[in-house]
Nucleic acid binder design. Structure first.
Lengths: 330, 330
DNA sequence: TTGTAAGCGTTATCAT
DNA sequence: ATGATAACGCTTACAA
């Protein structure tokens, strides 16, 4: 459908080399010849076929990004930033979405690699040795955001563990006597990568050690609202706060509370993780931990490009600063 | 870095044709030869270069999707659906994001076309004759979602105009005496495509005609909250409802109200458009119009694939059903 | 069973 | 100023 250099050459009765010179402005071309070439090119709306070009000089100048279901919107937010940063350096960003399915994720990553993306950014759902080998077999730089897969693959993250410790500090300082950590299932039957949650949990456990009088509990179930209910029902004369490993959990708890006529911080304290964008629409303002999405995205892209452009690179673990946001729910 | 058919052929001392036959399981290959080829391929993790393959048979089996800033999340929601539908038919989906910038949008679309996407899905920010010509110059099928660009380009949408009329009916039936339509700036200095809002506005105007006693007003400013304030301040003895052309507007109004100690429906009625996913986290439950994101996405993909696969196709305007959702804010 | 040759659209090198 | 040729990696006839 689209016109090619060869076709232009034929129409103009010159060789394709001449056409190229005219089009790309390199080398010298007869004035009249050039004019005619440019006219035809314009008329038929010539555009270079980037597949062919890439095939030729072995570079696509494209990055692949695997993102997940909108539920976990904290990653979706980064897409714009990634796109902008990549563009600054002349790279095109190809995003694919993976609806929380391990097999799909691999399939999509493979699809990106097969399409010759020069590097891949991913907040992985998969984990383990097999996945590590898979990523390494791609033979292109891969950067993990948040979730860690292996030391052989660069991860950009915030120090979730100490963030959780500080969150505990804050909650304790506010005078809560019982603190409940809410996170995804830890037994994790599906084998999903919940590294960040594990880190936060570790931080939580570490954090409460400092407060021997503090009661604590961990809720790590798919169906966590009934457990929350139990906690509230059992509530005696002490104040309880829920520290949720992810703002969505916290929002669900908040919504659940509203249905029961409970509000925070009056009836219980509530704190999330991630500081997702939609929080600005939520009342009361959720206290949370900002995991610095923007910084992580910028760093991840810059690191990826570095790995692409330097023949030699070594995997790293990069930590960015987080921020404890004490707002209205504690 | 990755191994190619030629390299395998060389290693095995056969021609690349033989290697291809072994790899693709077509034609007959000597048992031993095949075994050796497969081993080398496995060892070096051979994967066909899809750029080369596409270049060869003129098909990429890929779709491009242009999506916008997460603010307008109503489109982001569709991505998963689009991806799944495309995959069912064997297509790969490449998403790019455009942060509300007219130039960027064109650039990204061109980038997708240059990379030989076979079709493009877009909820366009651009509009007008120039943009229409641009899209047509791509020479590949383009489907617009929501916003209309030209009759020469297929649009999939819901009937926003009648939806707005019905919304007015609902609000009037609830006994409101003053109804204020909130939408983006209509003078629209940036030349952004606000077709859906224009349609809704038209529906609003049509709708109120049926209720001569109903007071009404239109707020179409970037900075609309002060105008809302004025409406509330001027409020006499009649009940006011805000019909917002987009749930984000409604949520902002709700948040604004909360800051002022006002709540709906006690102090004013509130209704949105789109039924974006995050509404489930919002209290009180926002009354809104479901613009059937899922249906639109599925239809758009199926229509796009049809246009890709049939040489001859004619642009259409496809309308899907919407749904008035009367919840708690009216 | 295996190989040769041409082609997809672009680019780079070397001649004329 | 212009052209011929080979190359990128894969595919598909068409031989041998």
């Amino acid at each position: 459908m689209a016109i090619t250099v060869n076709q232009i050459a034929e129409k103009c009765g010159v060789s394709r080399t001449t056409v190229l010179r005219a089009l790309n402005g390199k080398g010298s071309v007869g004035k009249e010849t050039k004019k005619q070439i440019m006219e035809i090119a314009k008329e038929y709306n010539y555009r270079p076929n980037l597949l062919a070009r890439s095939l030729n000089h072995g570079r696509t100048m494209s990055l692949g990004v695997v993102t997940i279901n909108v539920e976990n919107m904290y990653f979706v937010q980064s897409l714009n930033i990634i796109n902008k940063e990549a563009d600054k350096k002349g790279y095109f960003t190809n995003i694919v979405v993976c609806d929380e399915n391990l097999e799909w994720e691999r399939k999509l990553i493979q699809g990106l690699a097969d399409r010759q993306m020069e590097g891949i950014l991913i907040s992985p759902l998969n984990k383990g040795k097999g996945f590590e080998e898979f990523l390494l077999s791609l033979n292109i730089p891969v950067i993990c955001i948040g979730n860690h897969v292996s030391d052989a693959i660069t991860t950009v993250q915030v120090h979730e563990k100490t963030a959780a410790e500080e969150a505990v500090d804050l909650i304790a300082a506010k005078g809560y006597e019982n603190i409940v950590f809410v996170c995804p299932p830890l037994e994790n039957p599906k084998g999903i990568n919940i590294y960040v949650h594990e880190q936060r949990l570790a931080g939580f456990k570490e954090g409460i050690k400092k407060y021997p009088k503090l009661k604590s509990e961990i809720i790590g179930k798919e169906d966590y609202l009934p457990e929350i209910q139990k906690v509230i029902d059992a509530k005696k004369d002490y104040r309880t706060a829920f520290l949720c490993s992810g703002d969505s959990y916290a929002l669900n708890v908040m919504r659940w509370g509203e249905d029961k006529g409970l509000s925070c911080p009056r009836d219980f304290g509530l704190m999330g993780f991630d500081n997702i964008d939609m929080l600005k629409y939520i009342t009361p303002k959720l206290s949370t931990v900002s995991t610095n999405l923007e910084g992580v995205a910028v760093t991840a892209v810059s690191e990826l490009l570095q790995q692409i452009e330097n023949e030699q690179y070594s995997p790293k673990a990069i930590y960015l600063n987080y921020q404890i946001l004490d707002r209205e729910t504690l």
